[in-house]
């Protein structure tokens, strides 16, 4: 499967943590949404892009030992749900850390990293990961 257009389409959001804000109710979203699930039709034409600060704290985490095919060379890896300072939860890996250093509540910031290599095409895909704020 060639994923070139598919991953290019999302690259801006994945590289810079760009979500959306509903200017009808003020809710912020990441990943970006075309429609606000609270305002629905009222939000049409009122959704605008919002770049997140990239800071947040660990809401929950795990160490993955049995993973998906494209990630098998990264095992075991730390995966976390990050409560961003803007509000929404974001799911991603925590890198450059030992699992024993990660706690619920630890401060983190976003970093751009290589996520995985696409099997047949060999294309390297990039996106956000998180590092601990020391």
């Amino acid at each position: 499967m060639s994923d070139v257009p598919r991953f290019w389409r999302e690259s801006n959001h994945r590289y810079r943590l760009v979500g959306t804000k509903c200017n009808n109710c003020g809710s912020t979203f990441f990943p970006p949404r075309d429609v606000c699930p609270k305002c629905r039709r009222e939000s049409i034409g009122k959704m605008e892009e919002l770049e997140f600060s990239g800071y947040g704290e660990v809401y929950s985490y795990t160490v993955v030992h049995d993973g998906l095919e494209p990630f098998k060379f990264q095992l075991p890896y730390i995966l976390a749900m990050i409560k961003t300072d803007e509000g929404p939860l974001v799911t991603g890996q925590i890198v450059d850390a030992d699992p024993s250093e990660v706690k619920i509540g630890s401060r983190v910031r976003v970093t751009l990293r290589r996520i995985r290599e696409e099997g047949k095409t060999g294309i390297i895909q990039y996106g956000y990961k998180f590092i601990l704020e020391k």
Binding site: S60, T62, V64, L68, L79, T91, Q93, I115, R116, G127
Partner: peptide, 24 residues
């Protein structure tokens, strides 16, 4: 696929993070 599995999320990892949070 775009906002979970792309980043290495598995079903088990989501269940694990729920468990971790509930214990916390």
């Amino acid at each position: 696929a775009e906002w979970e599995t792309f980043f290495g999320v598995t079903e088990a990892s989501l269940a694990a993070m729920i468990a971790k949070r509930l214990e916390y």
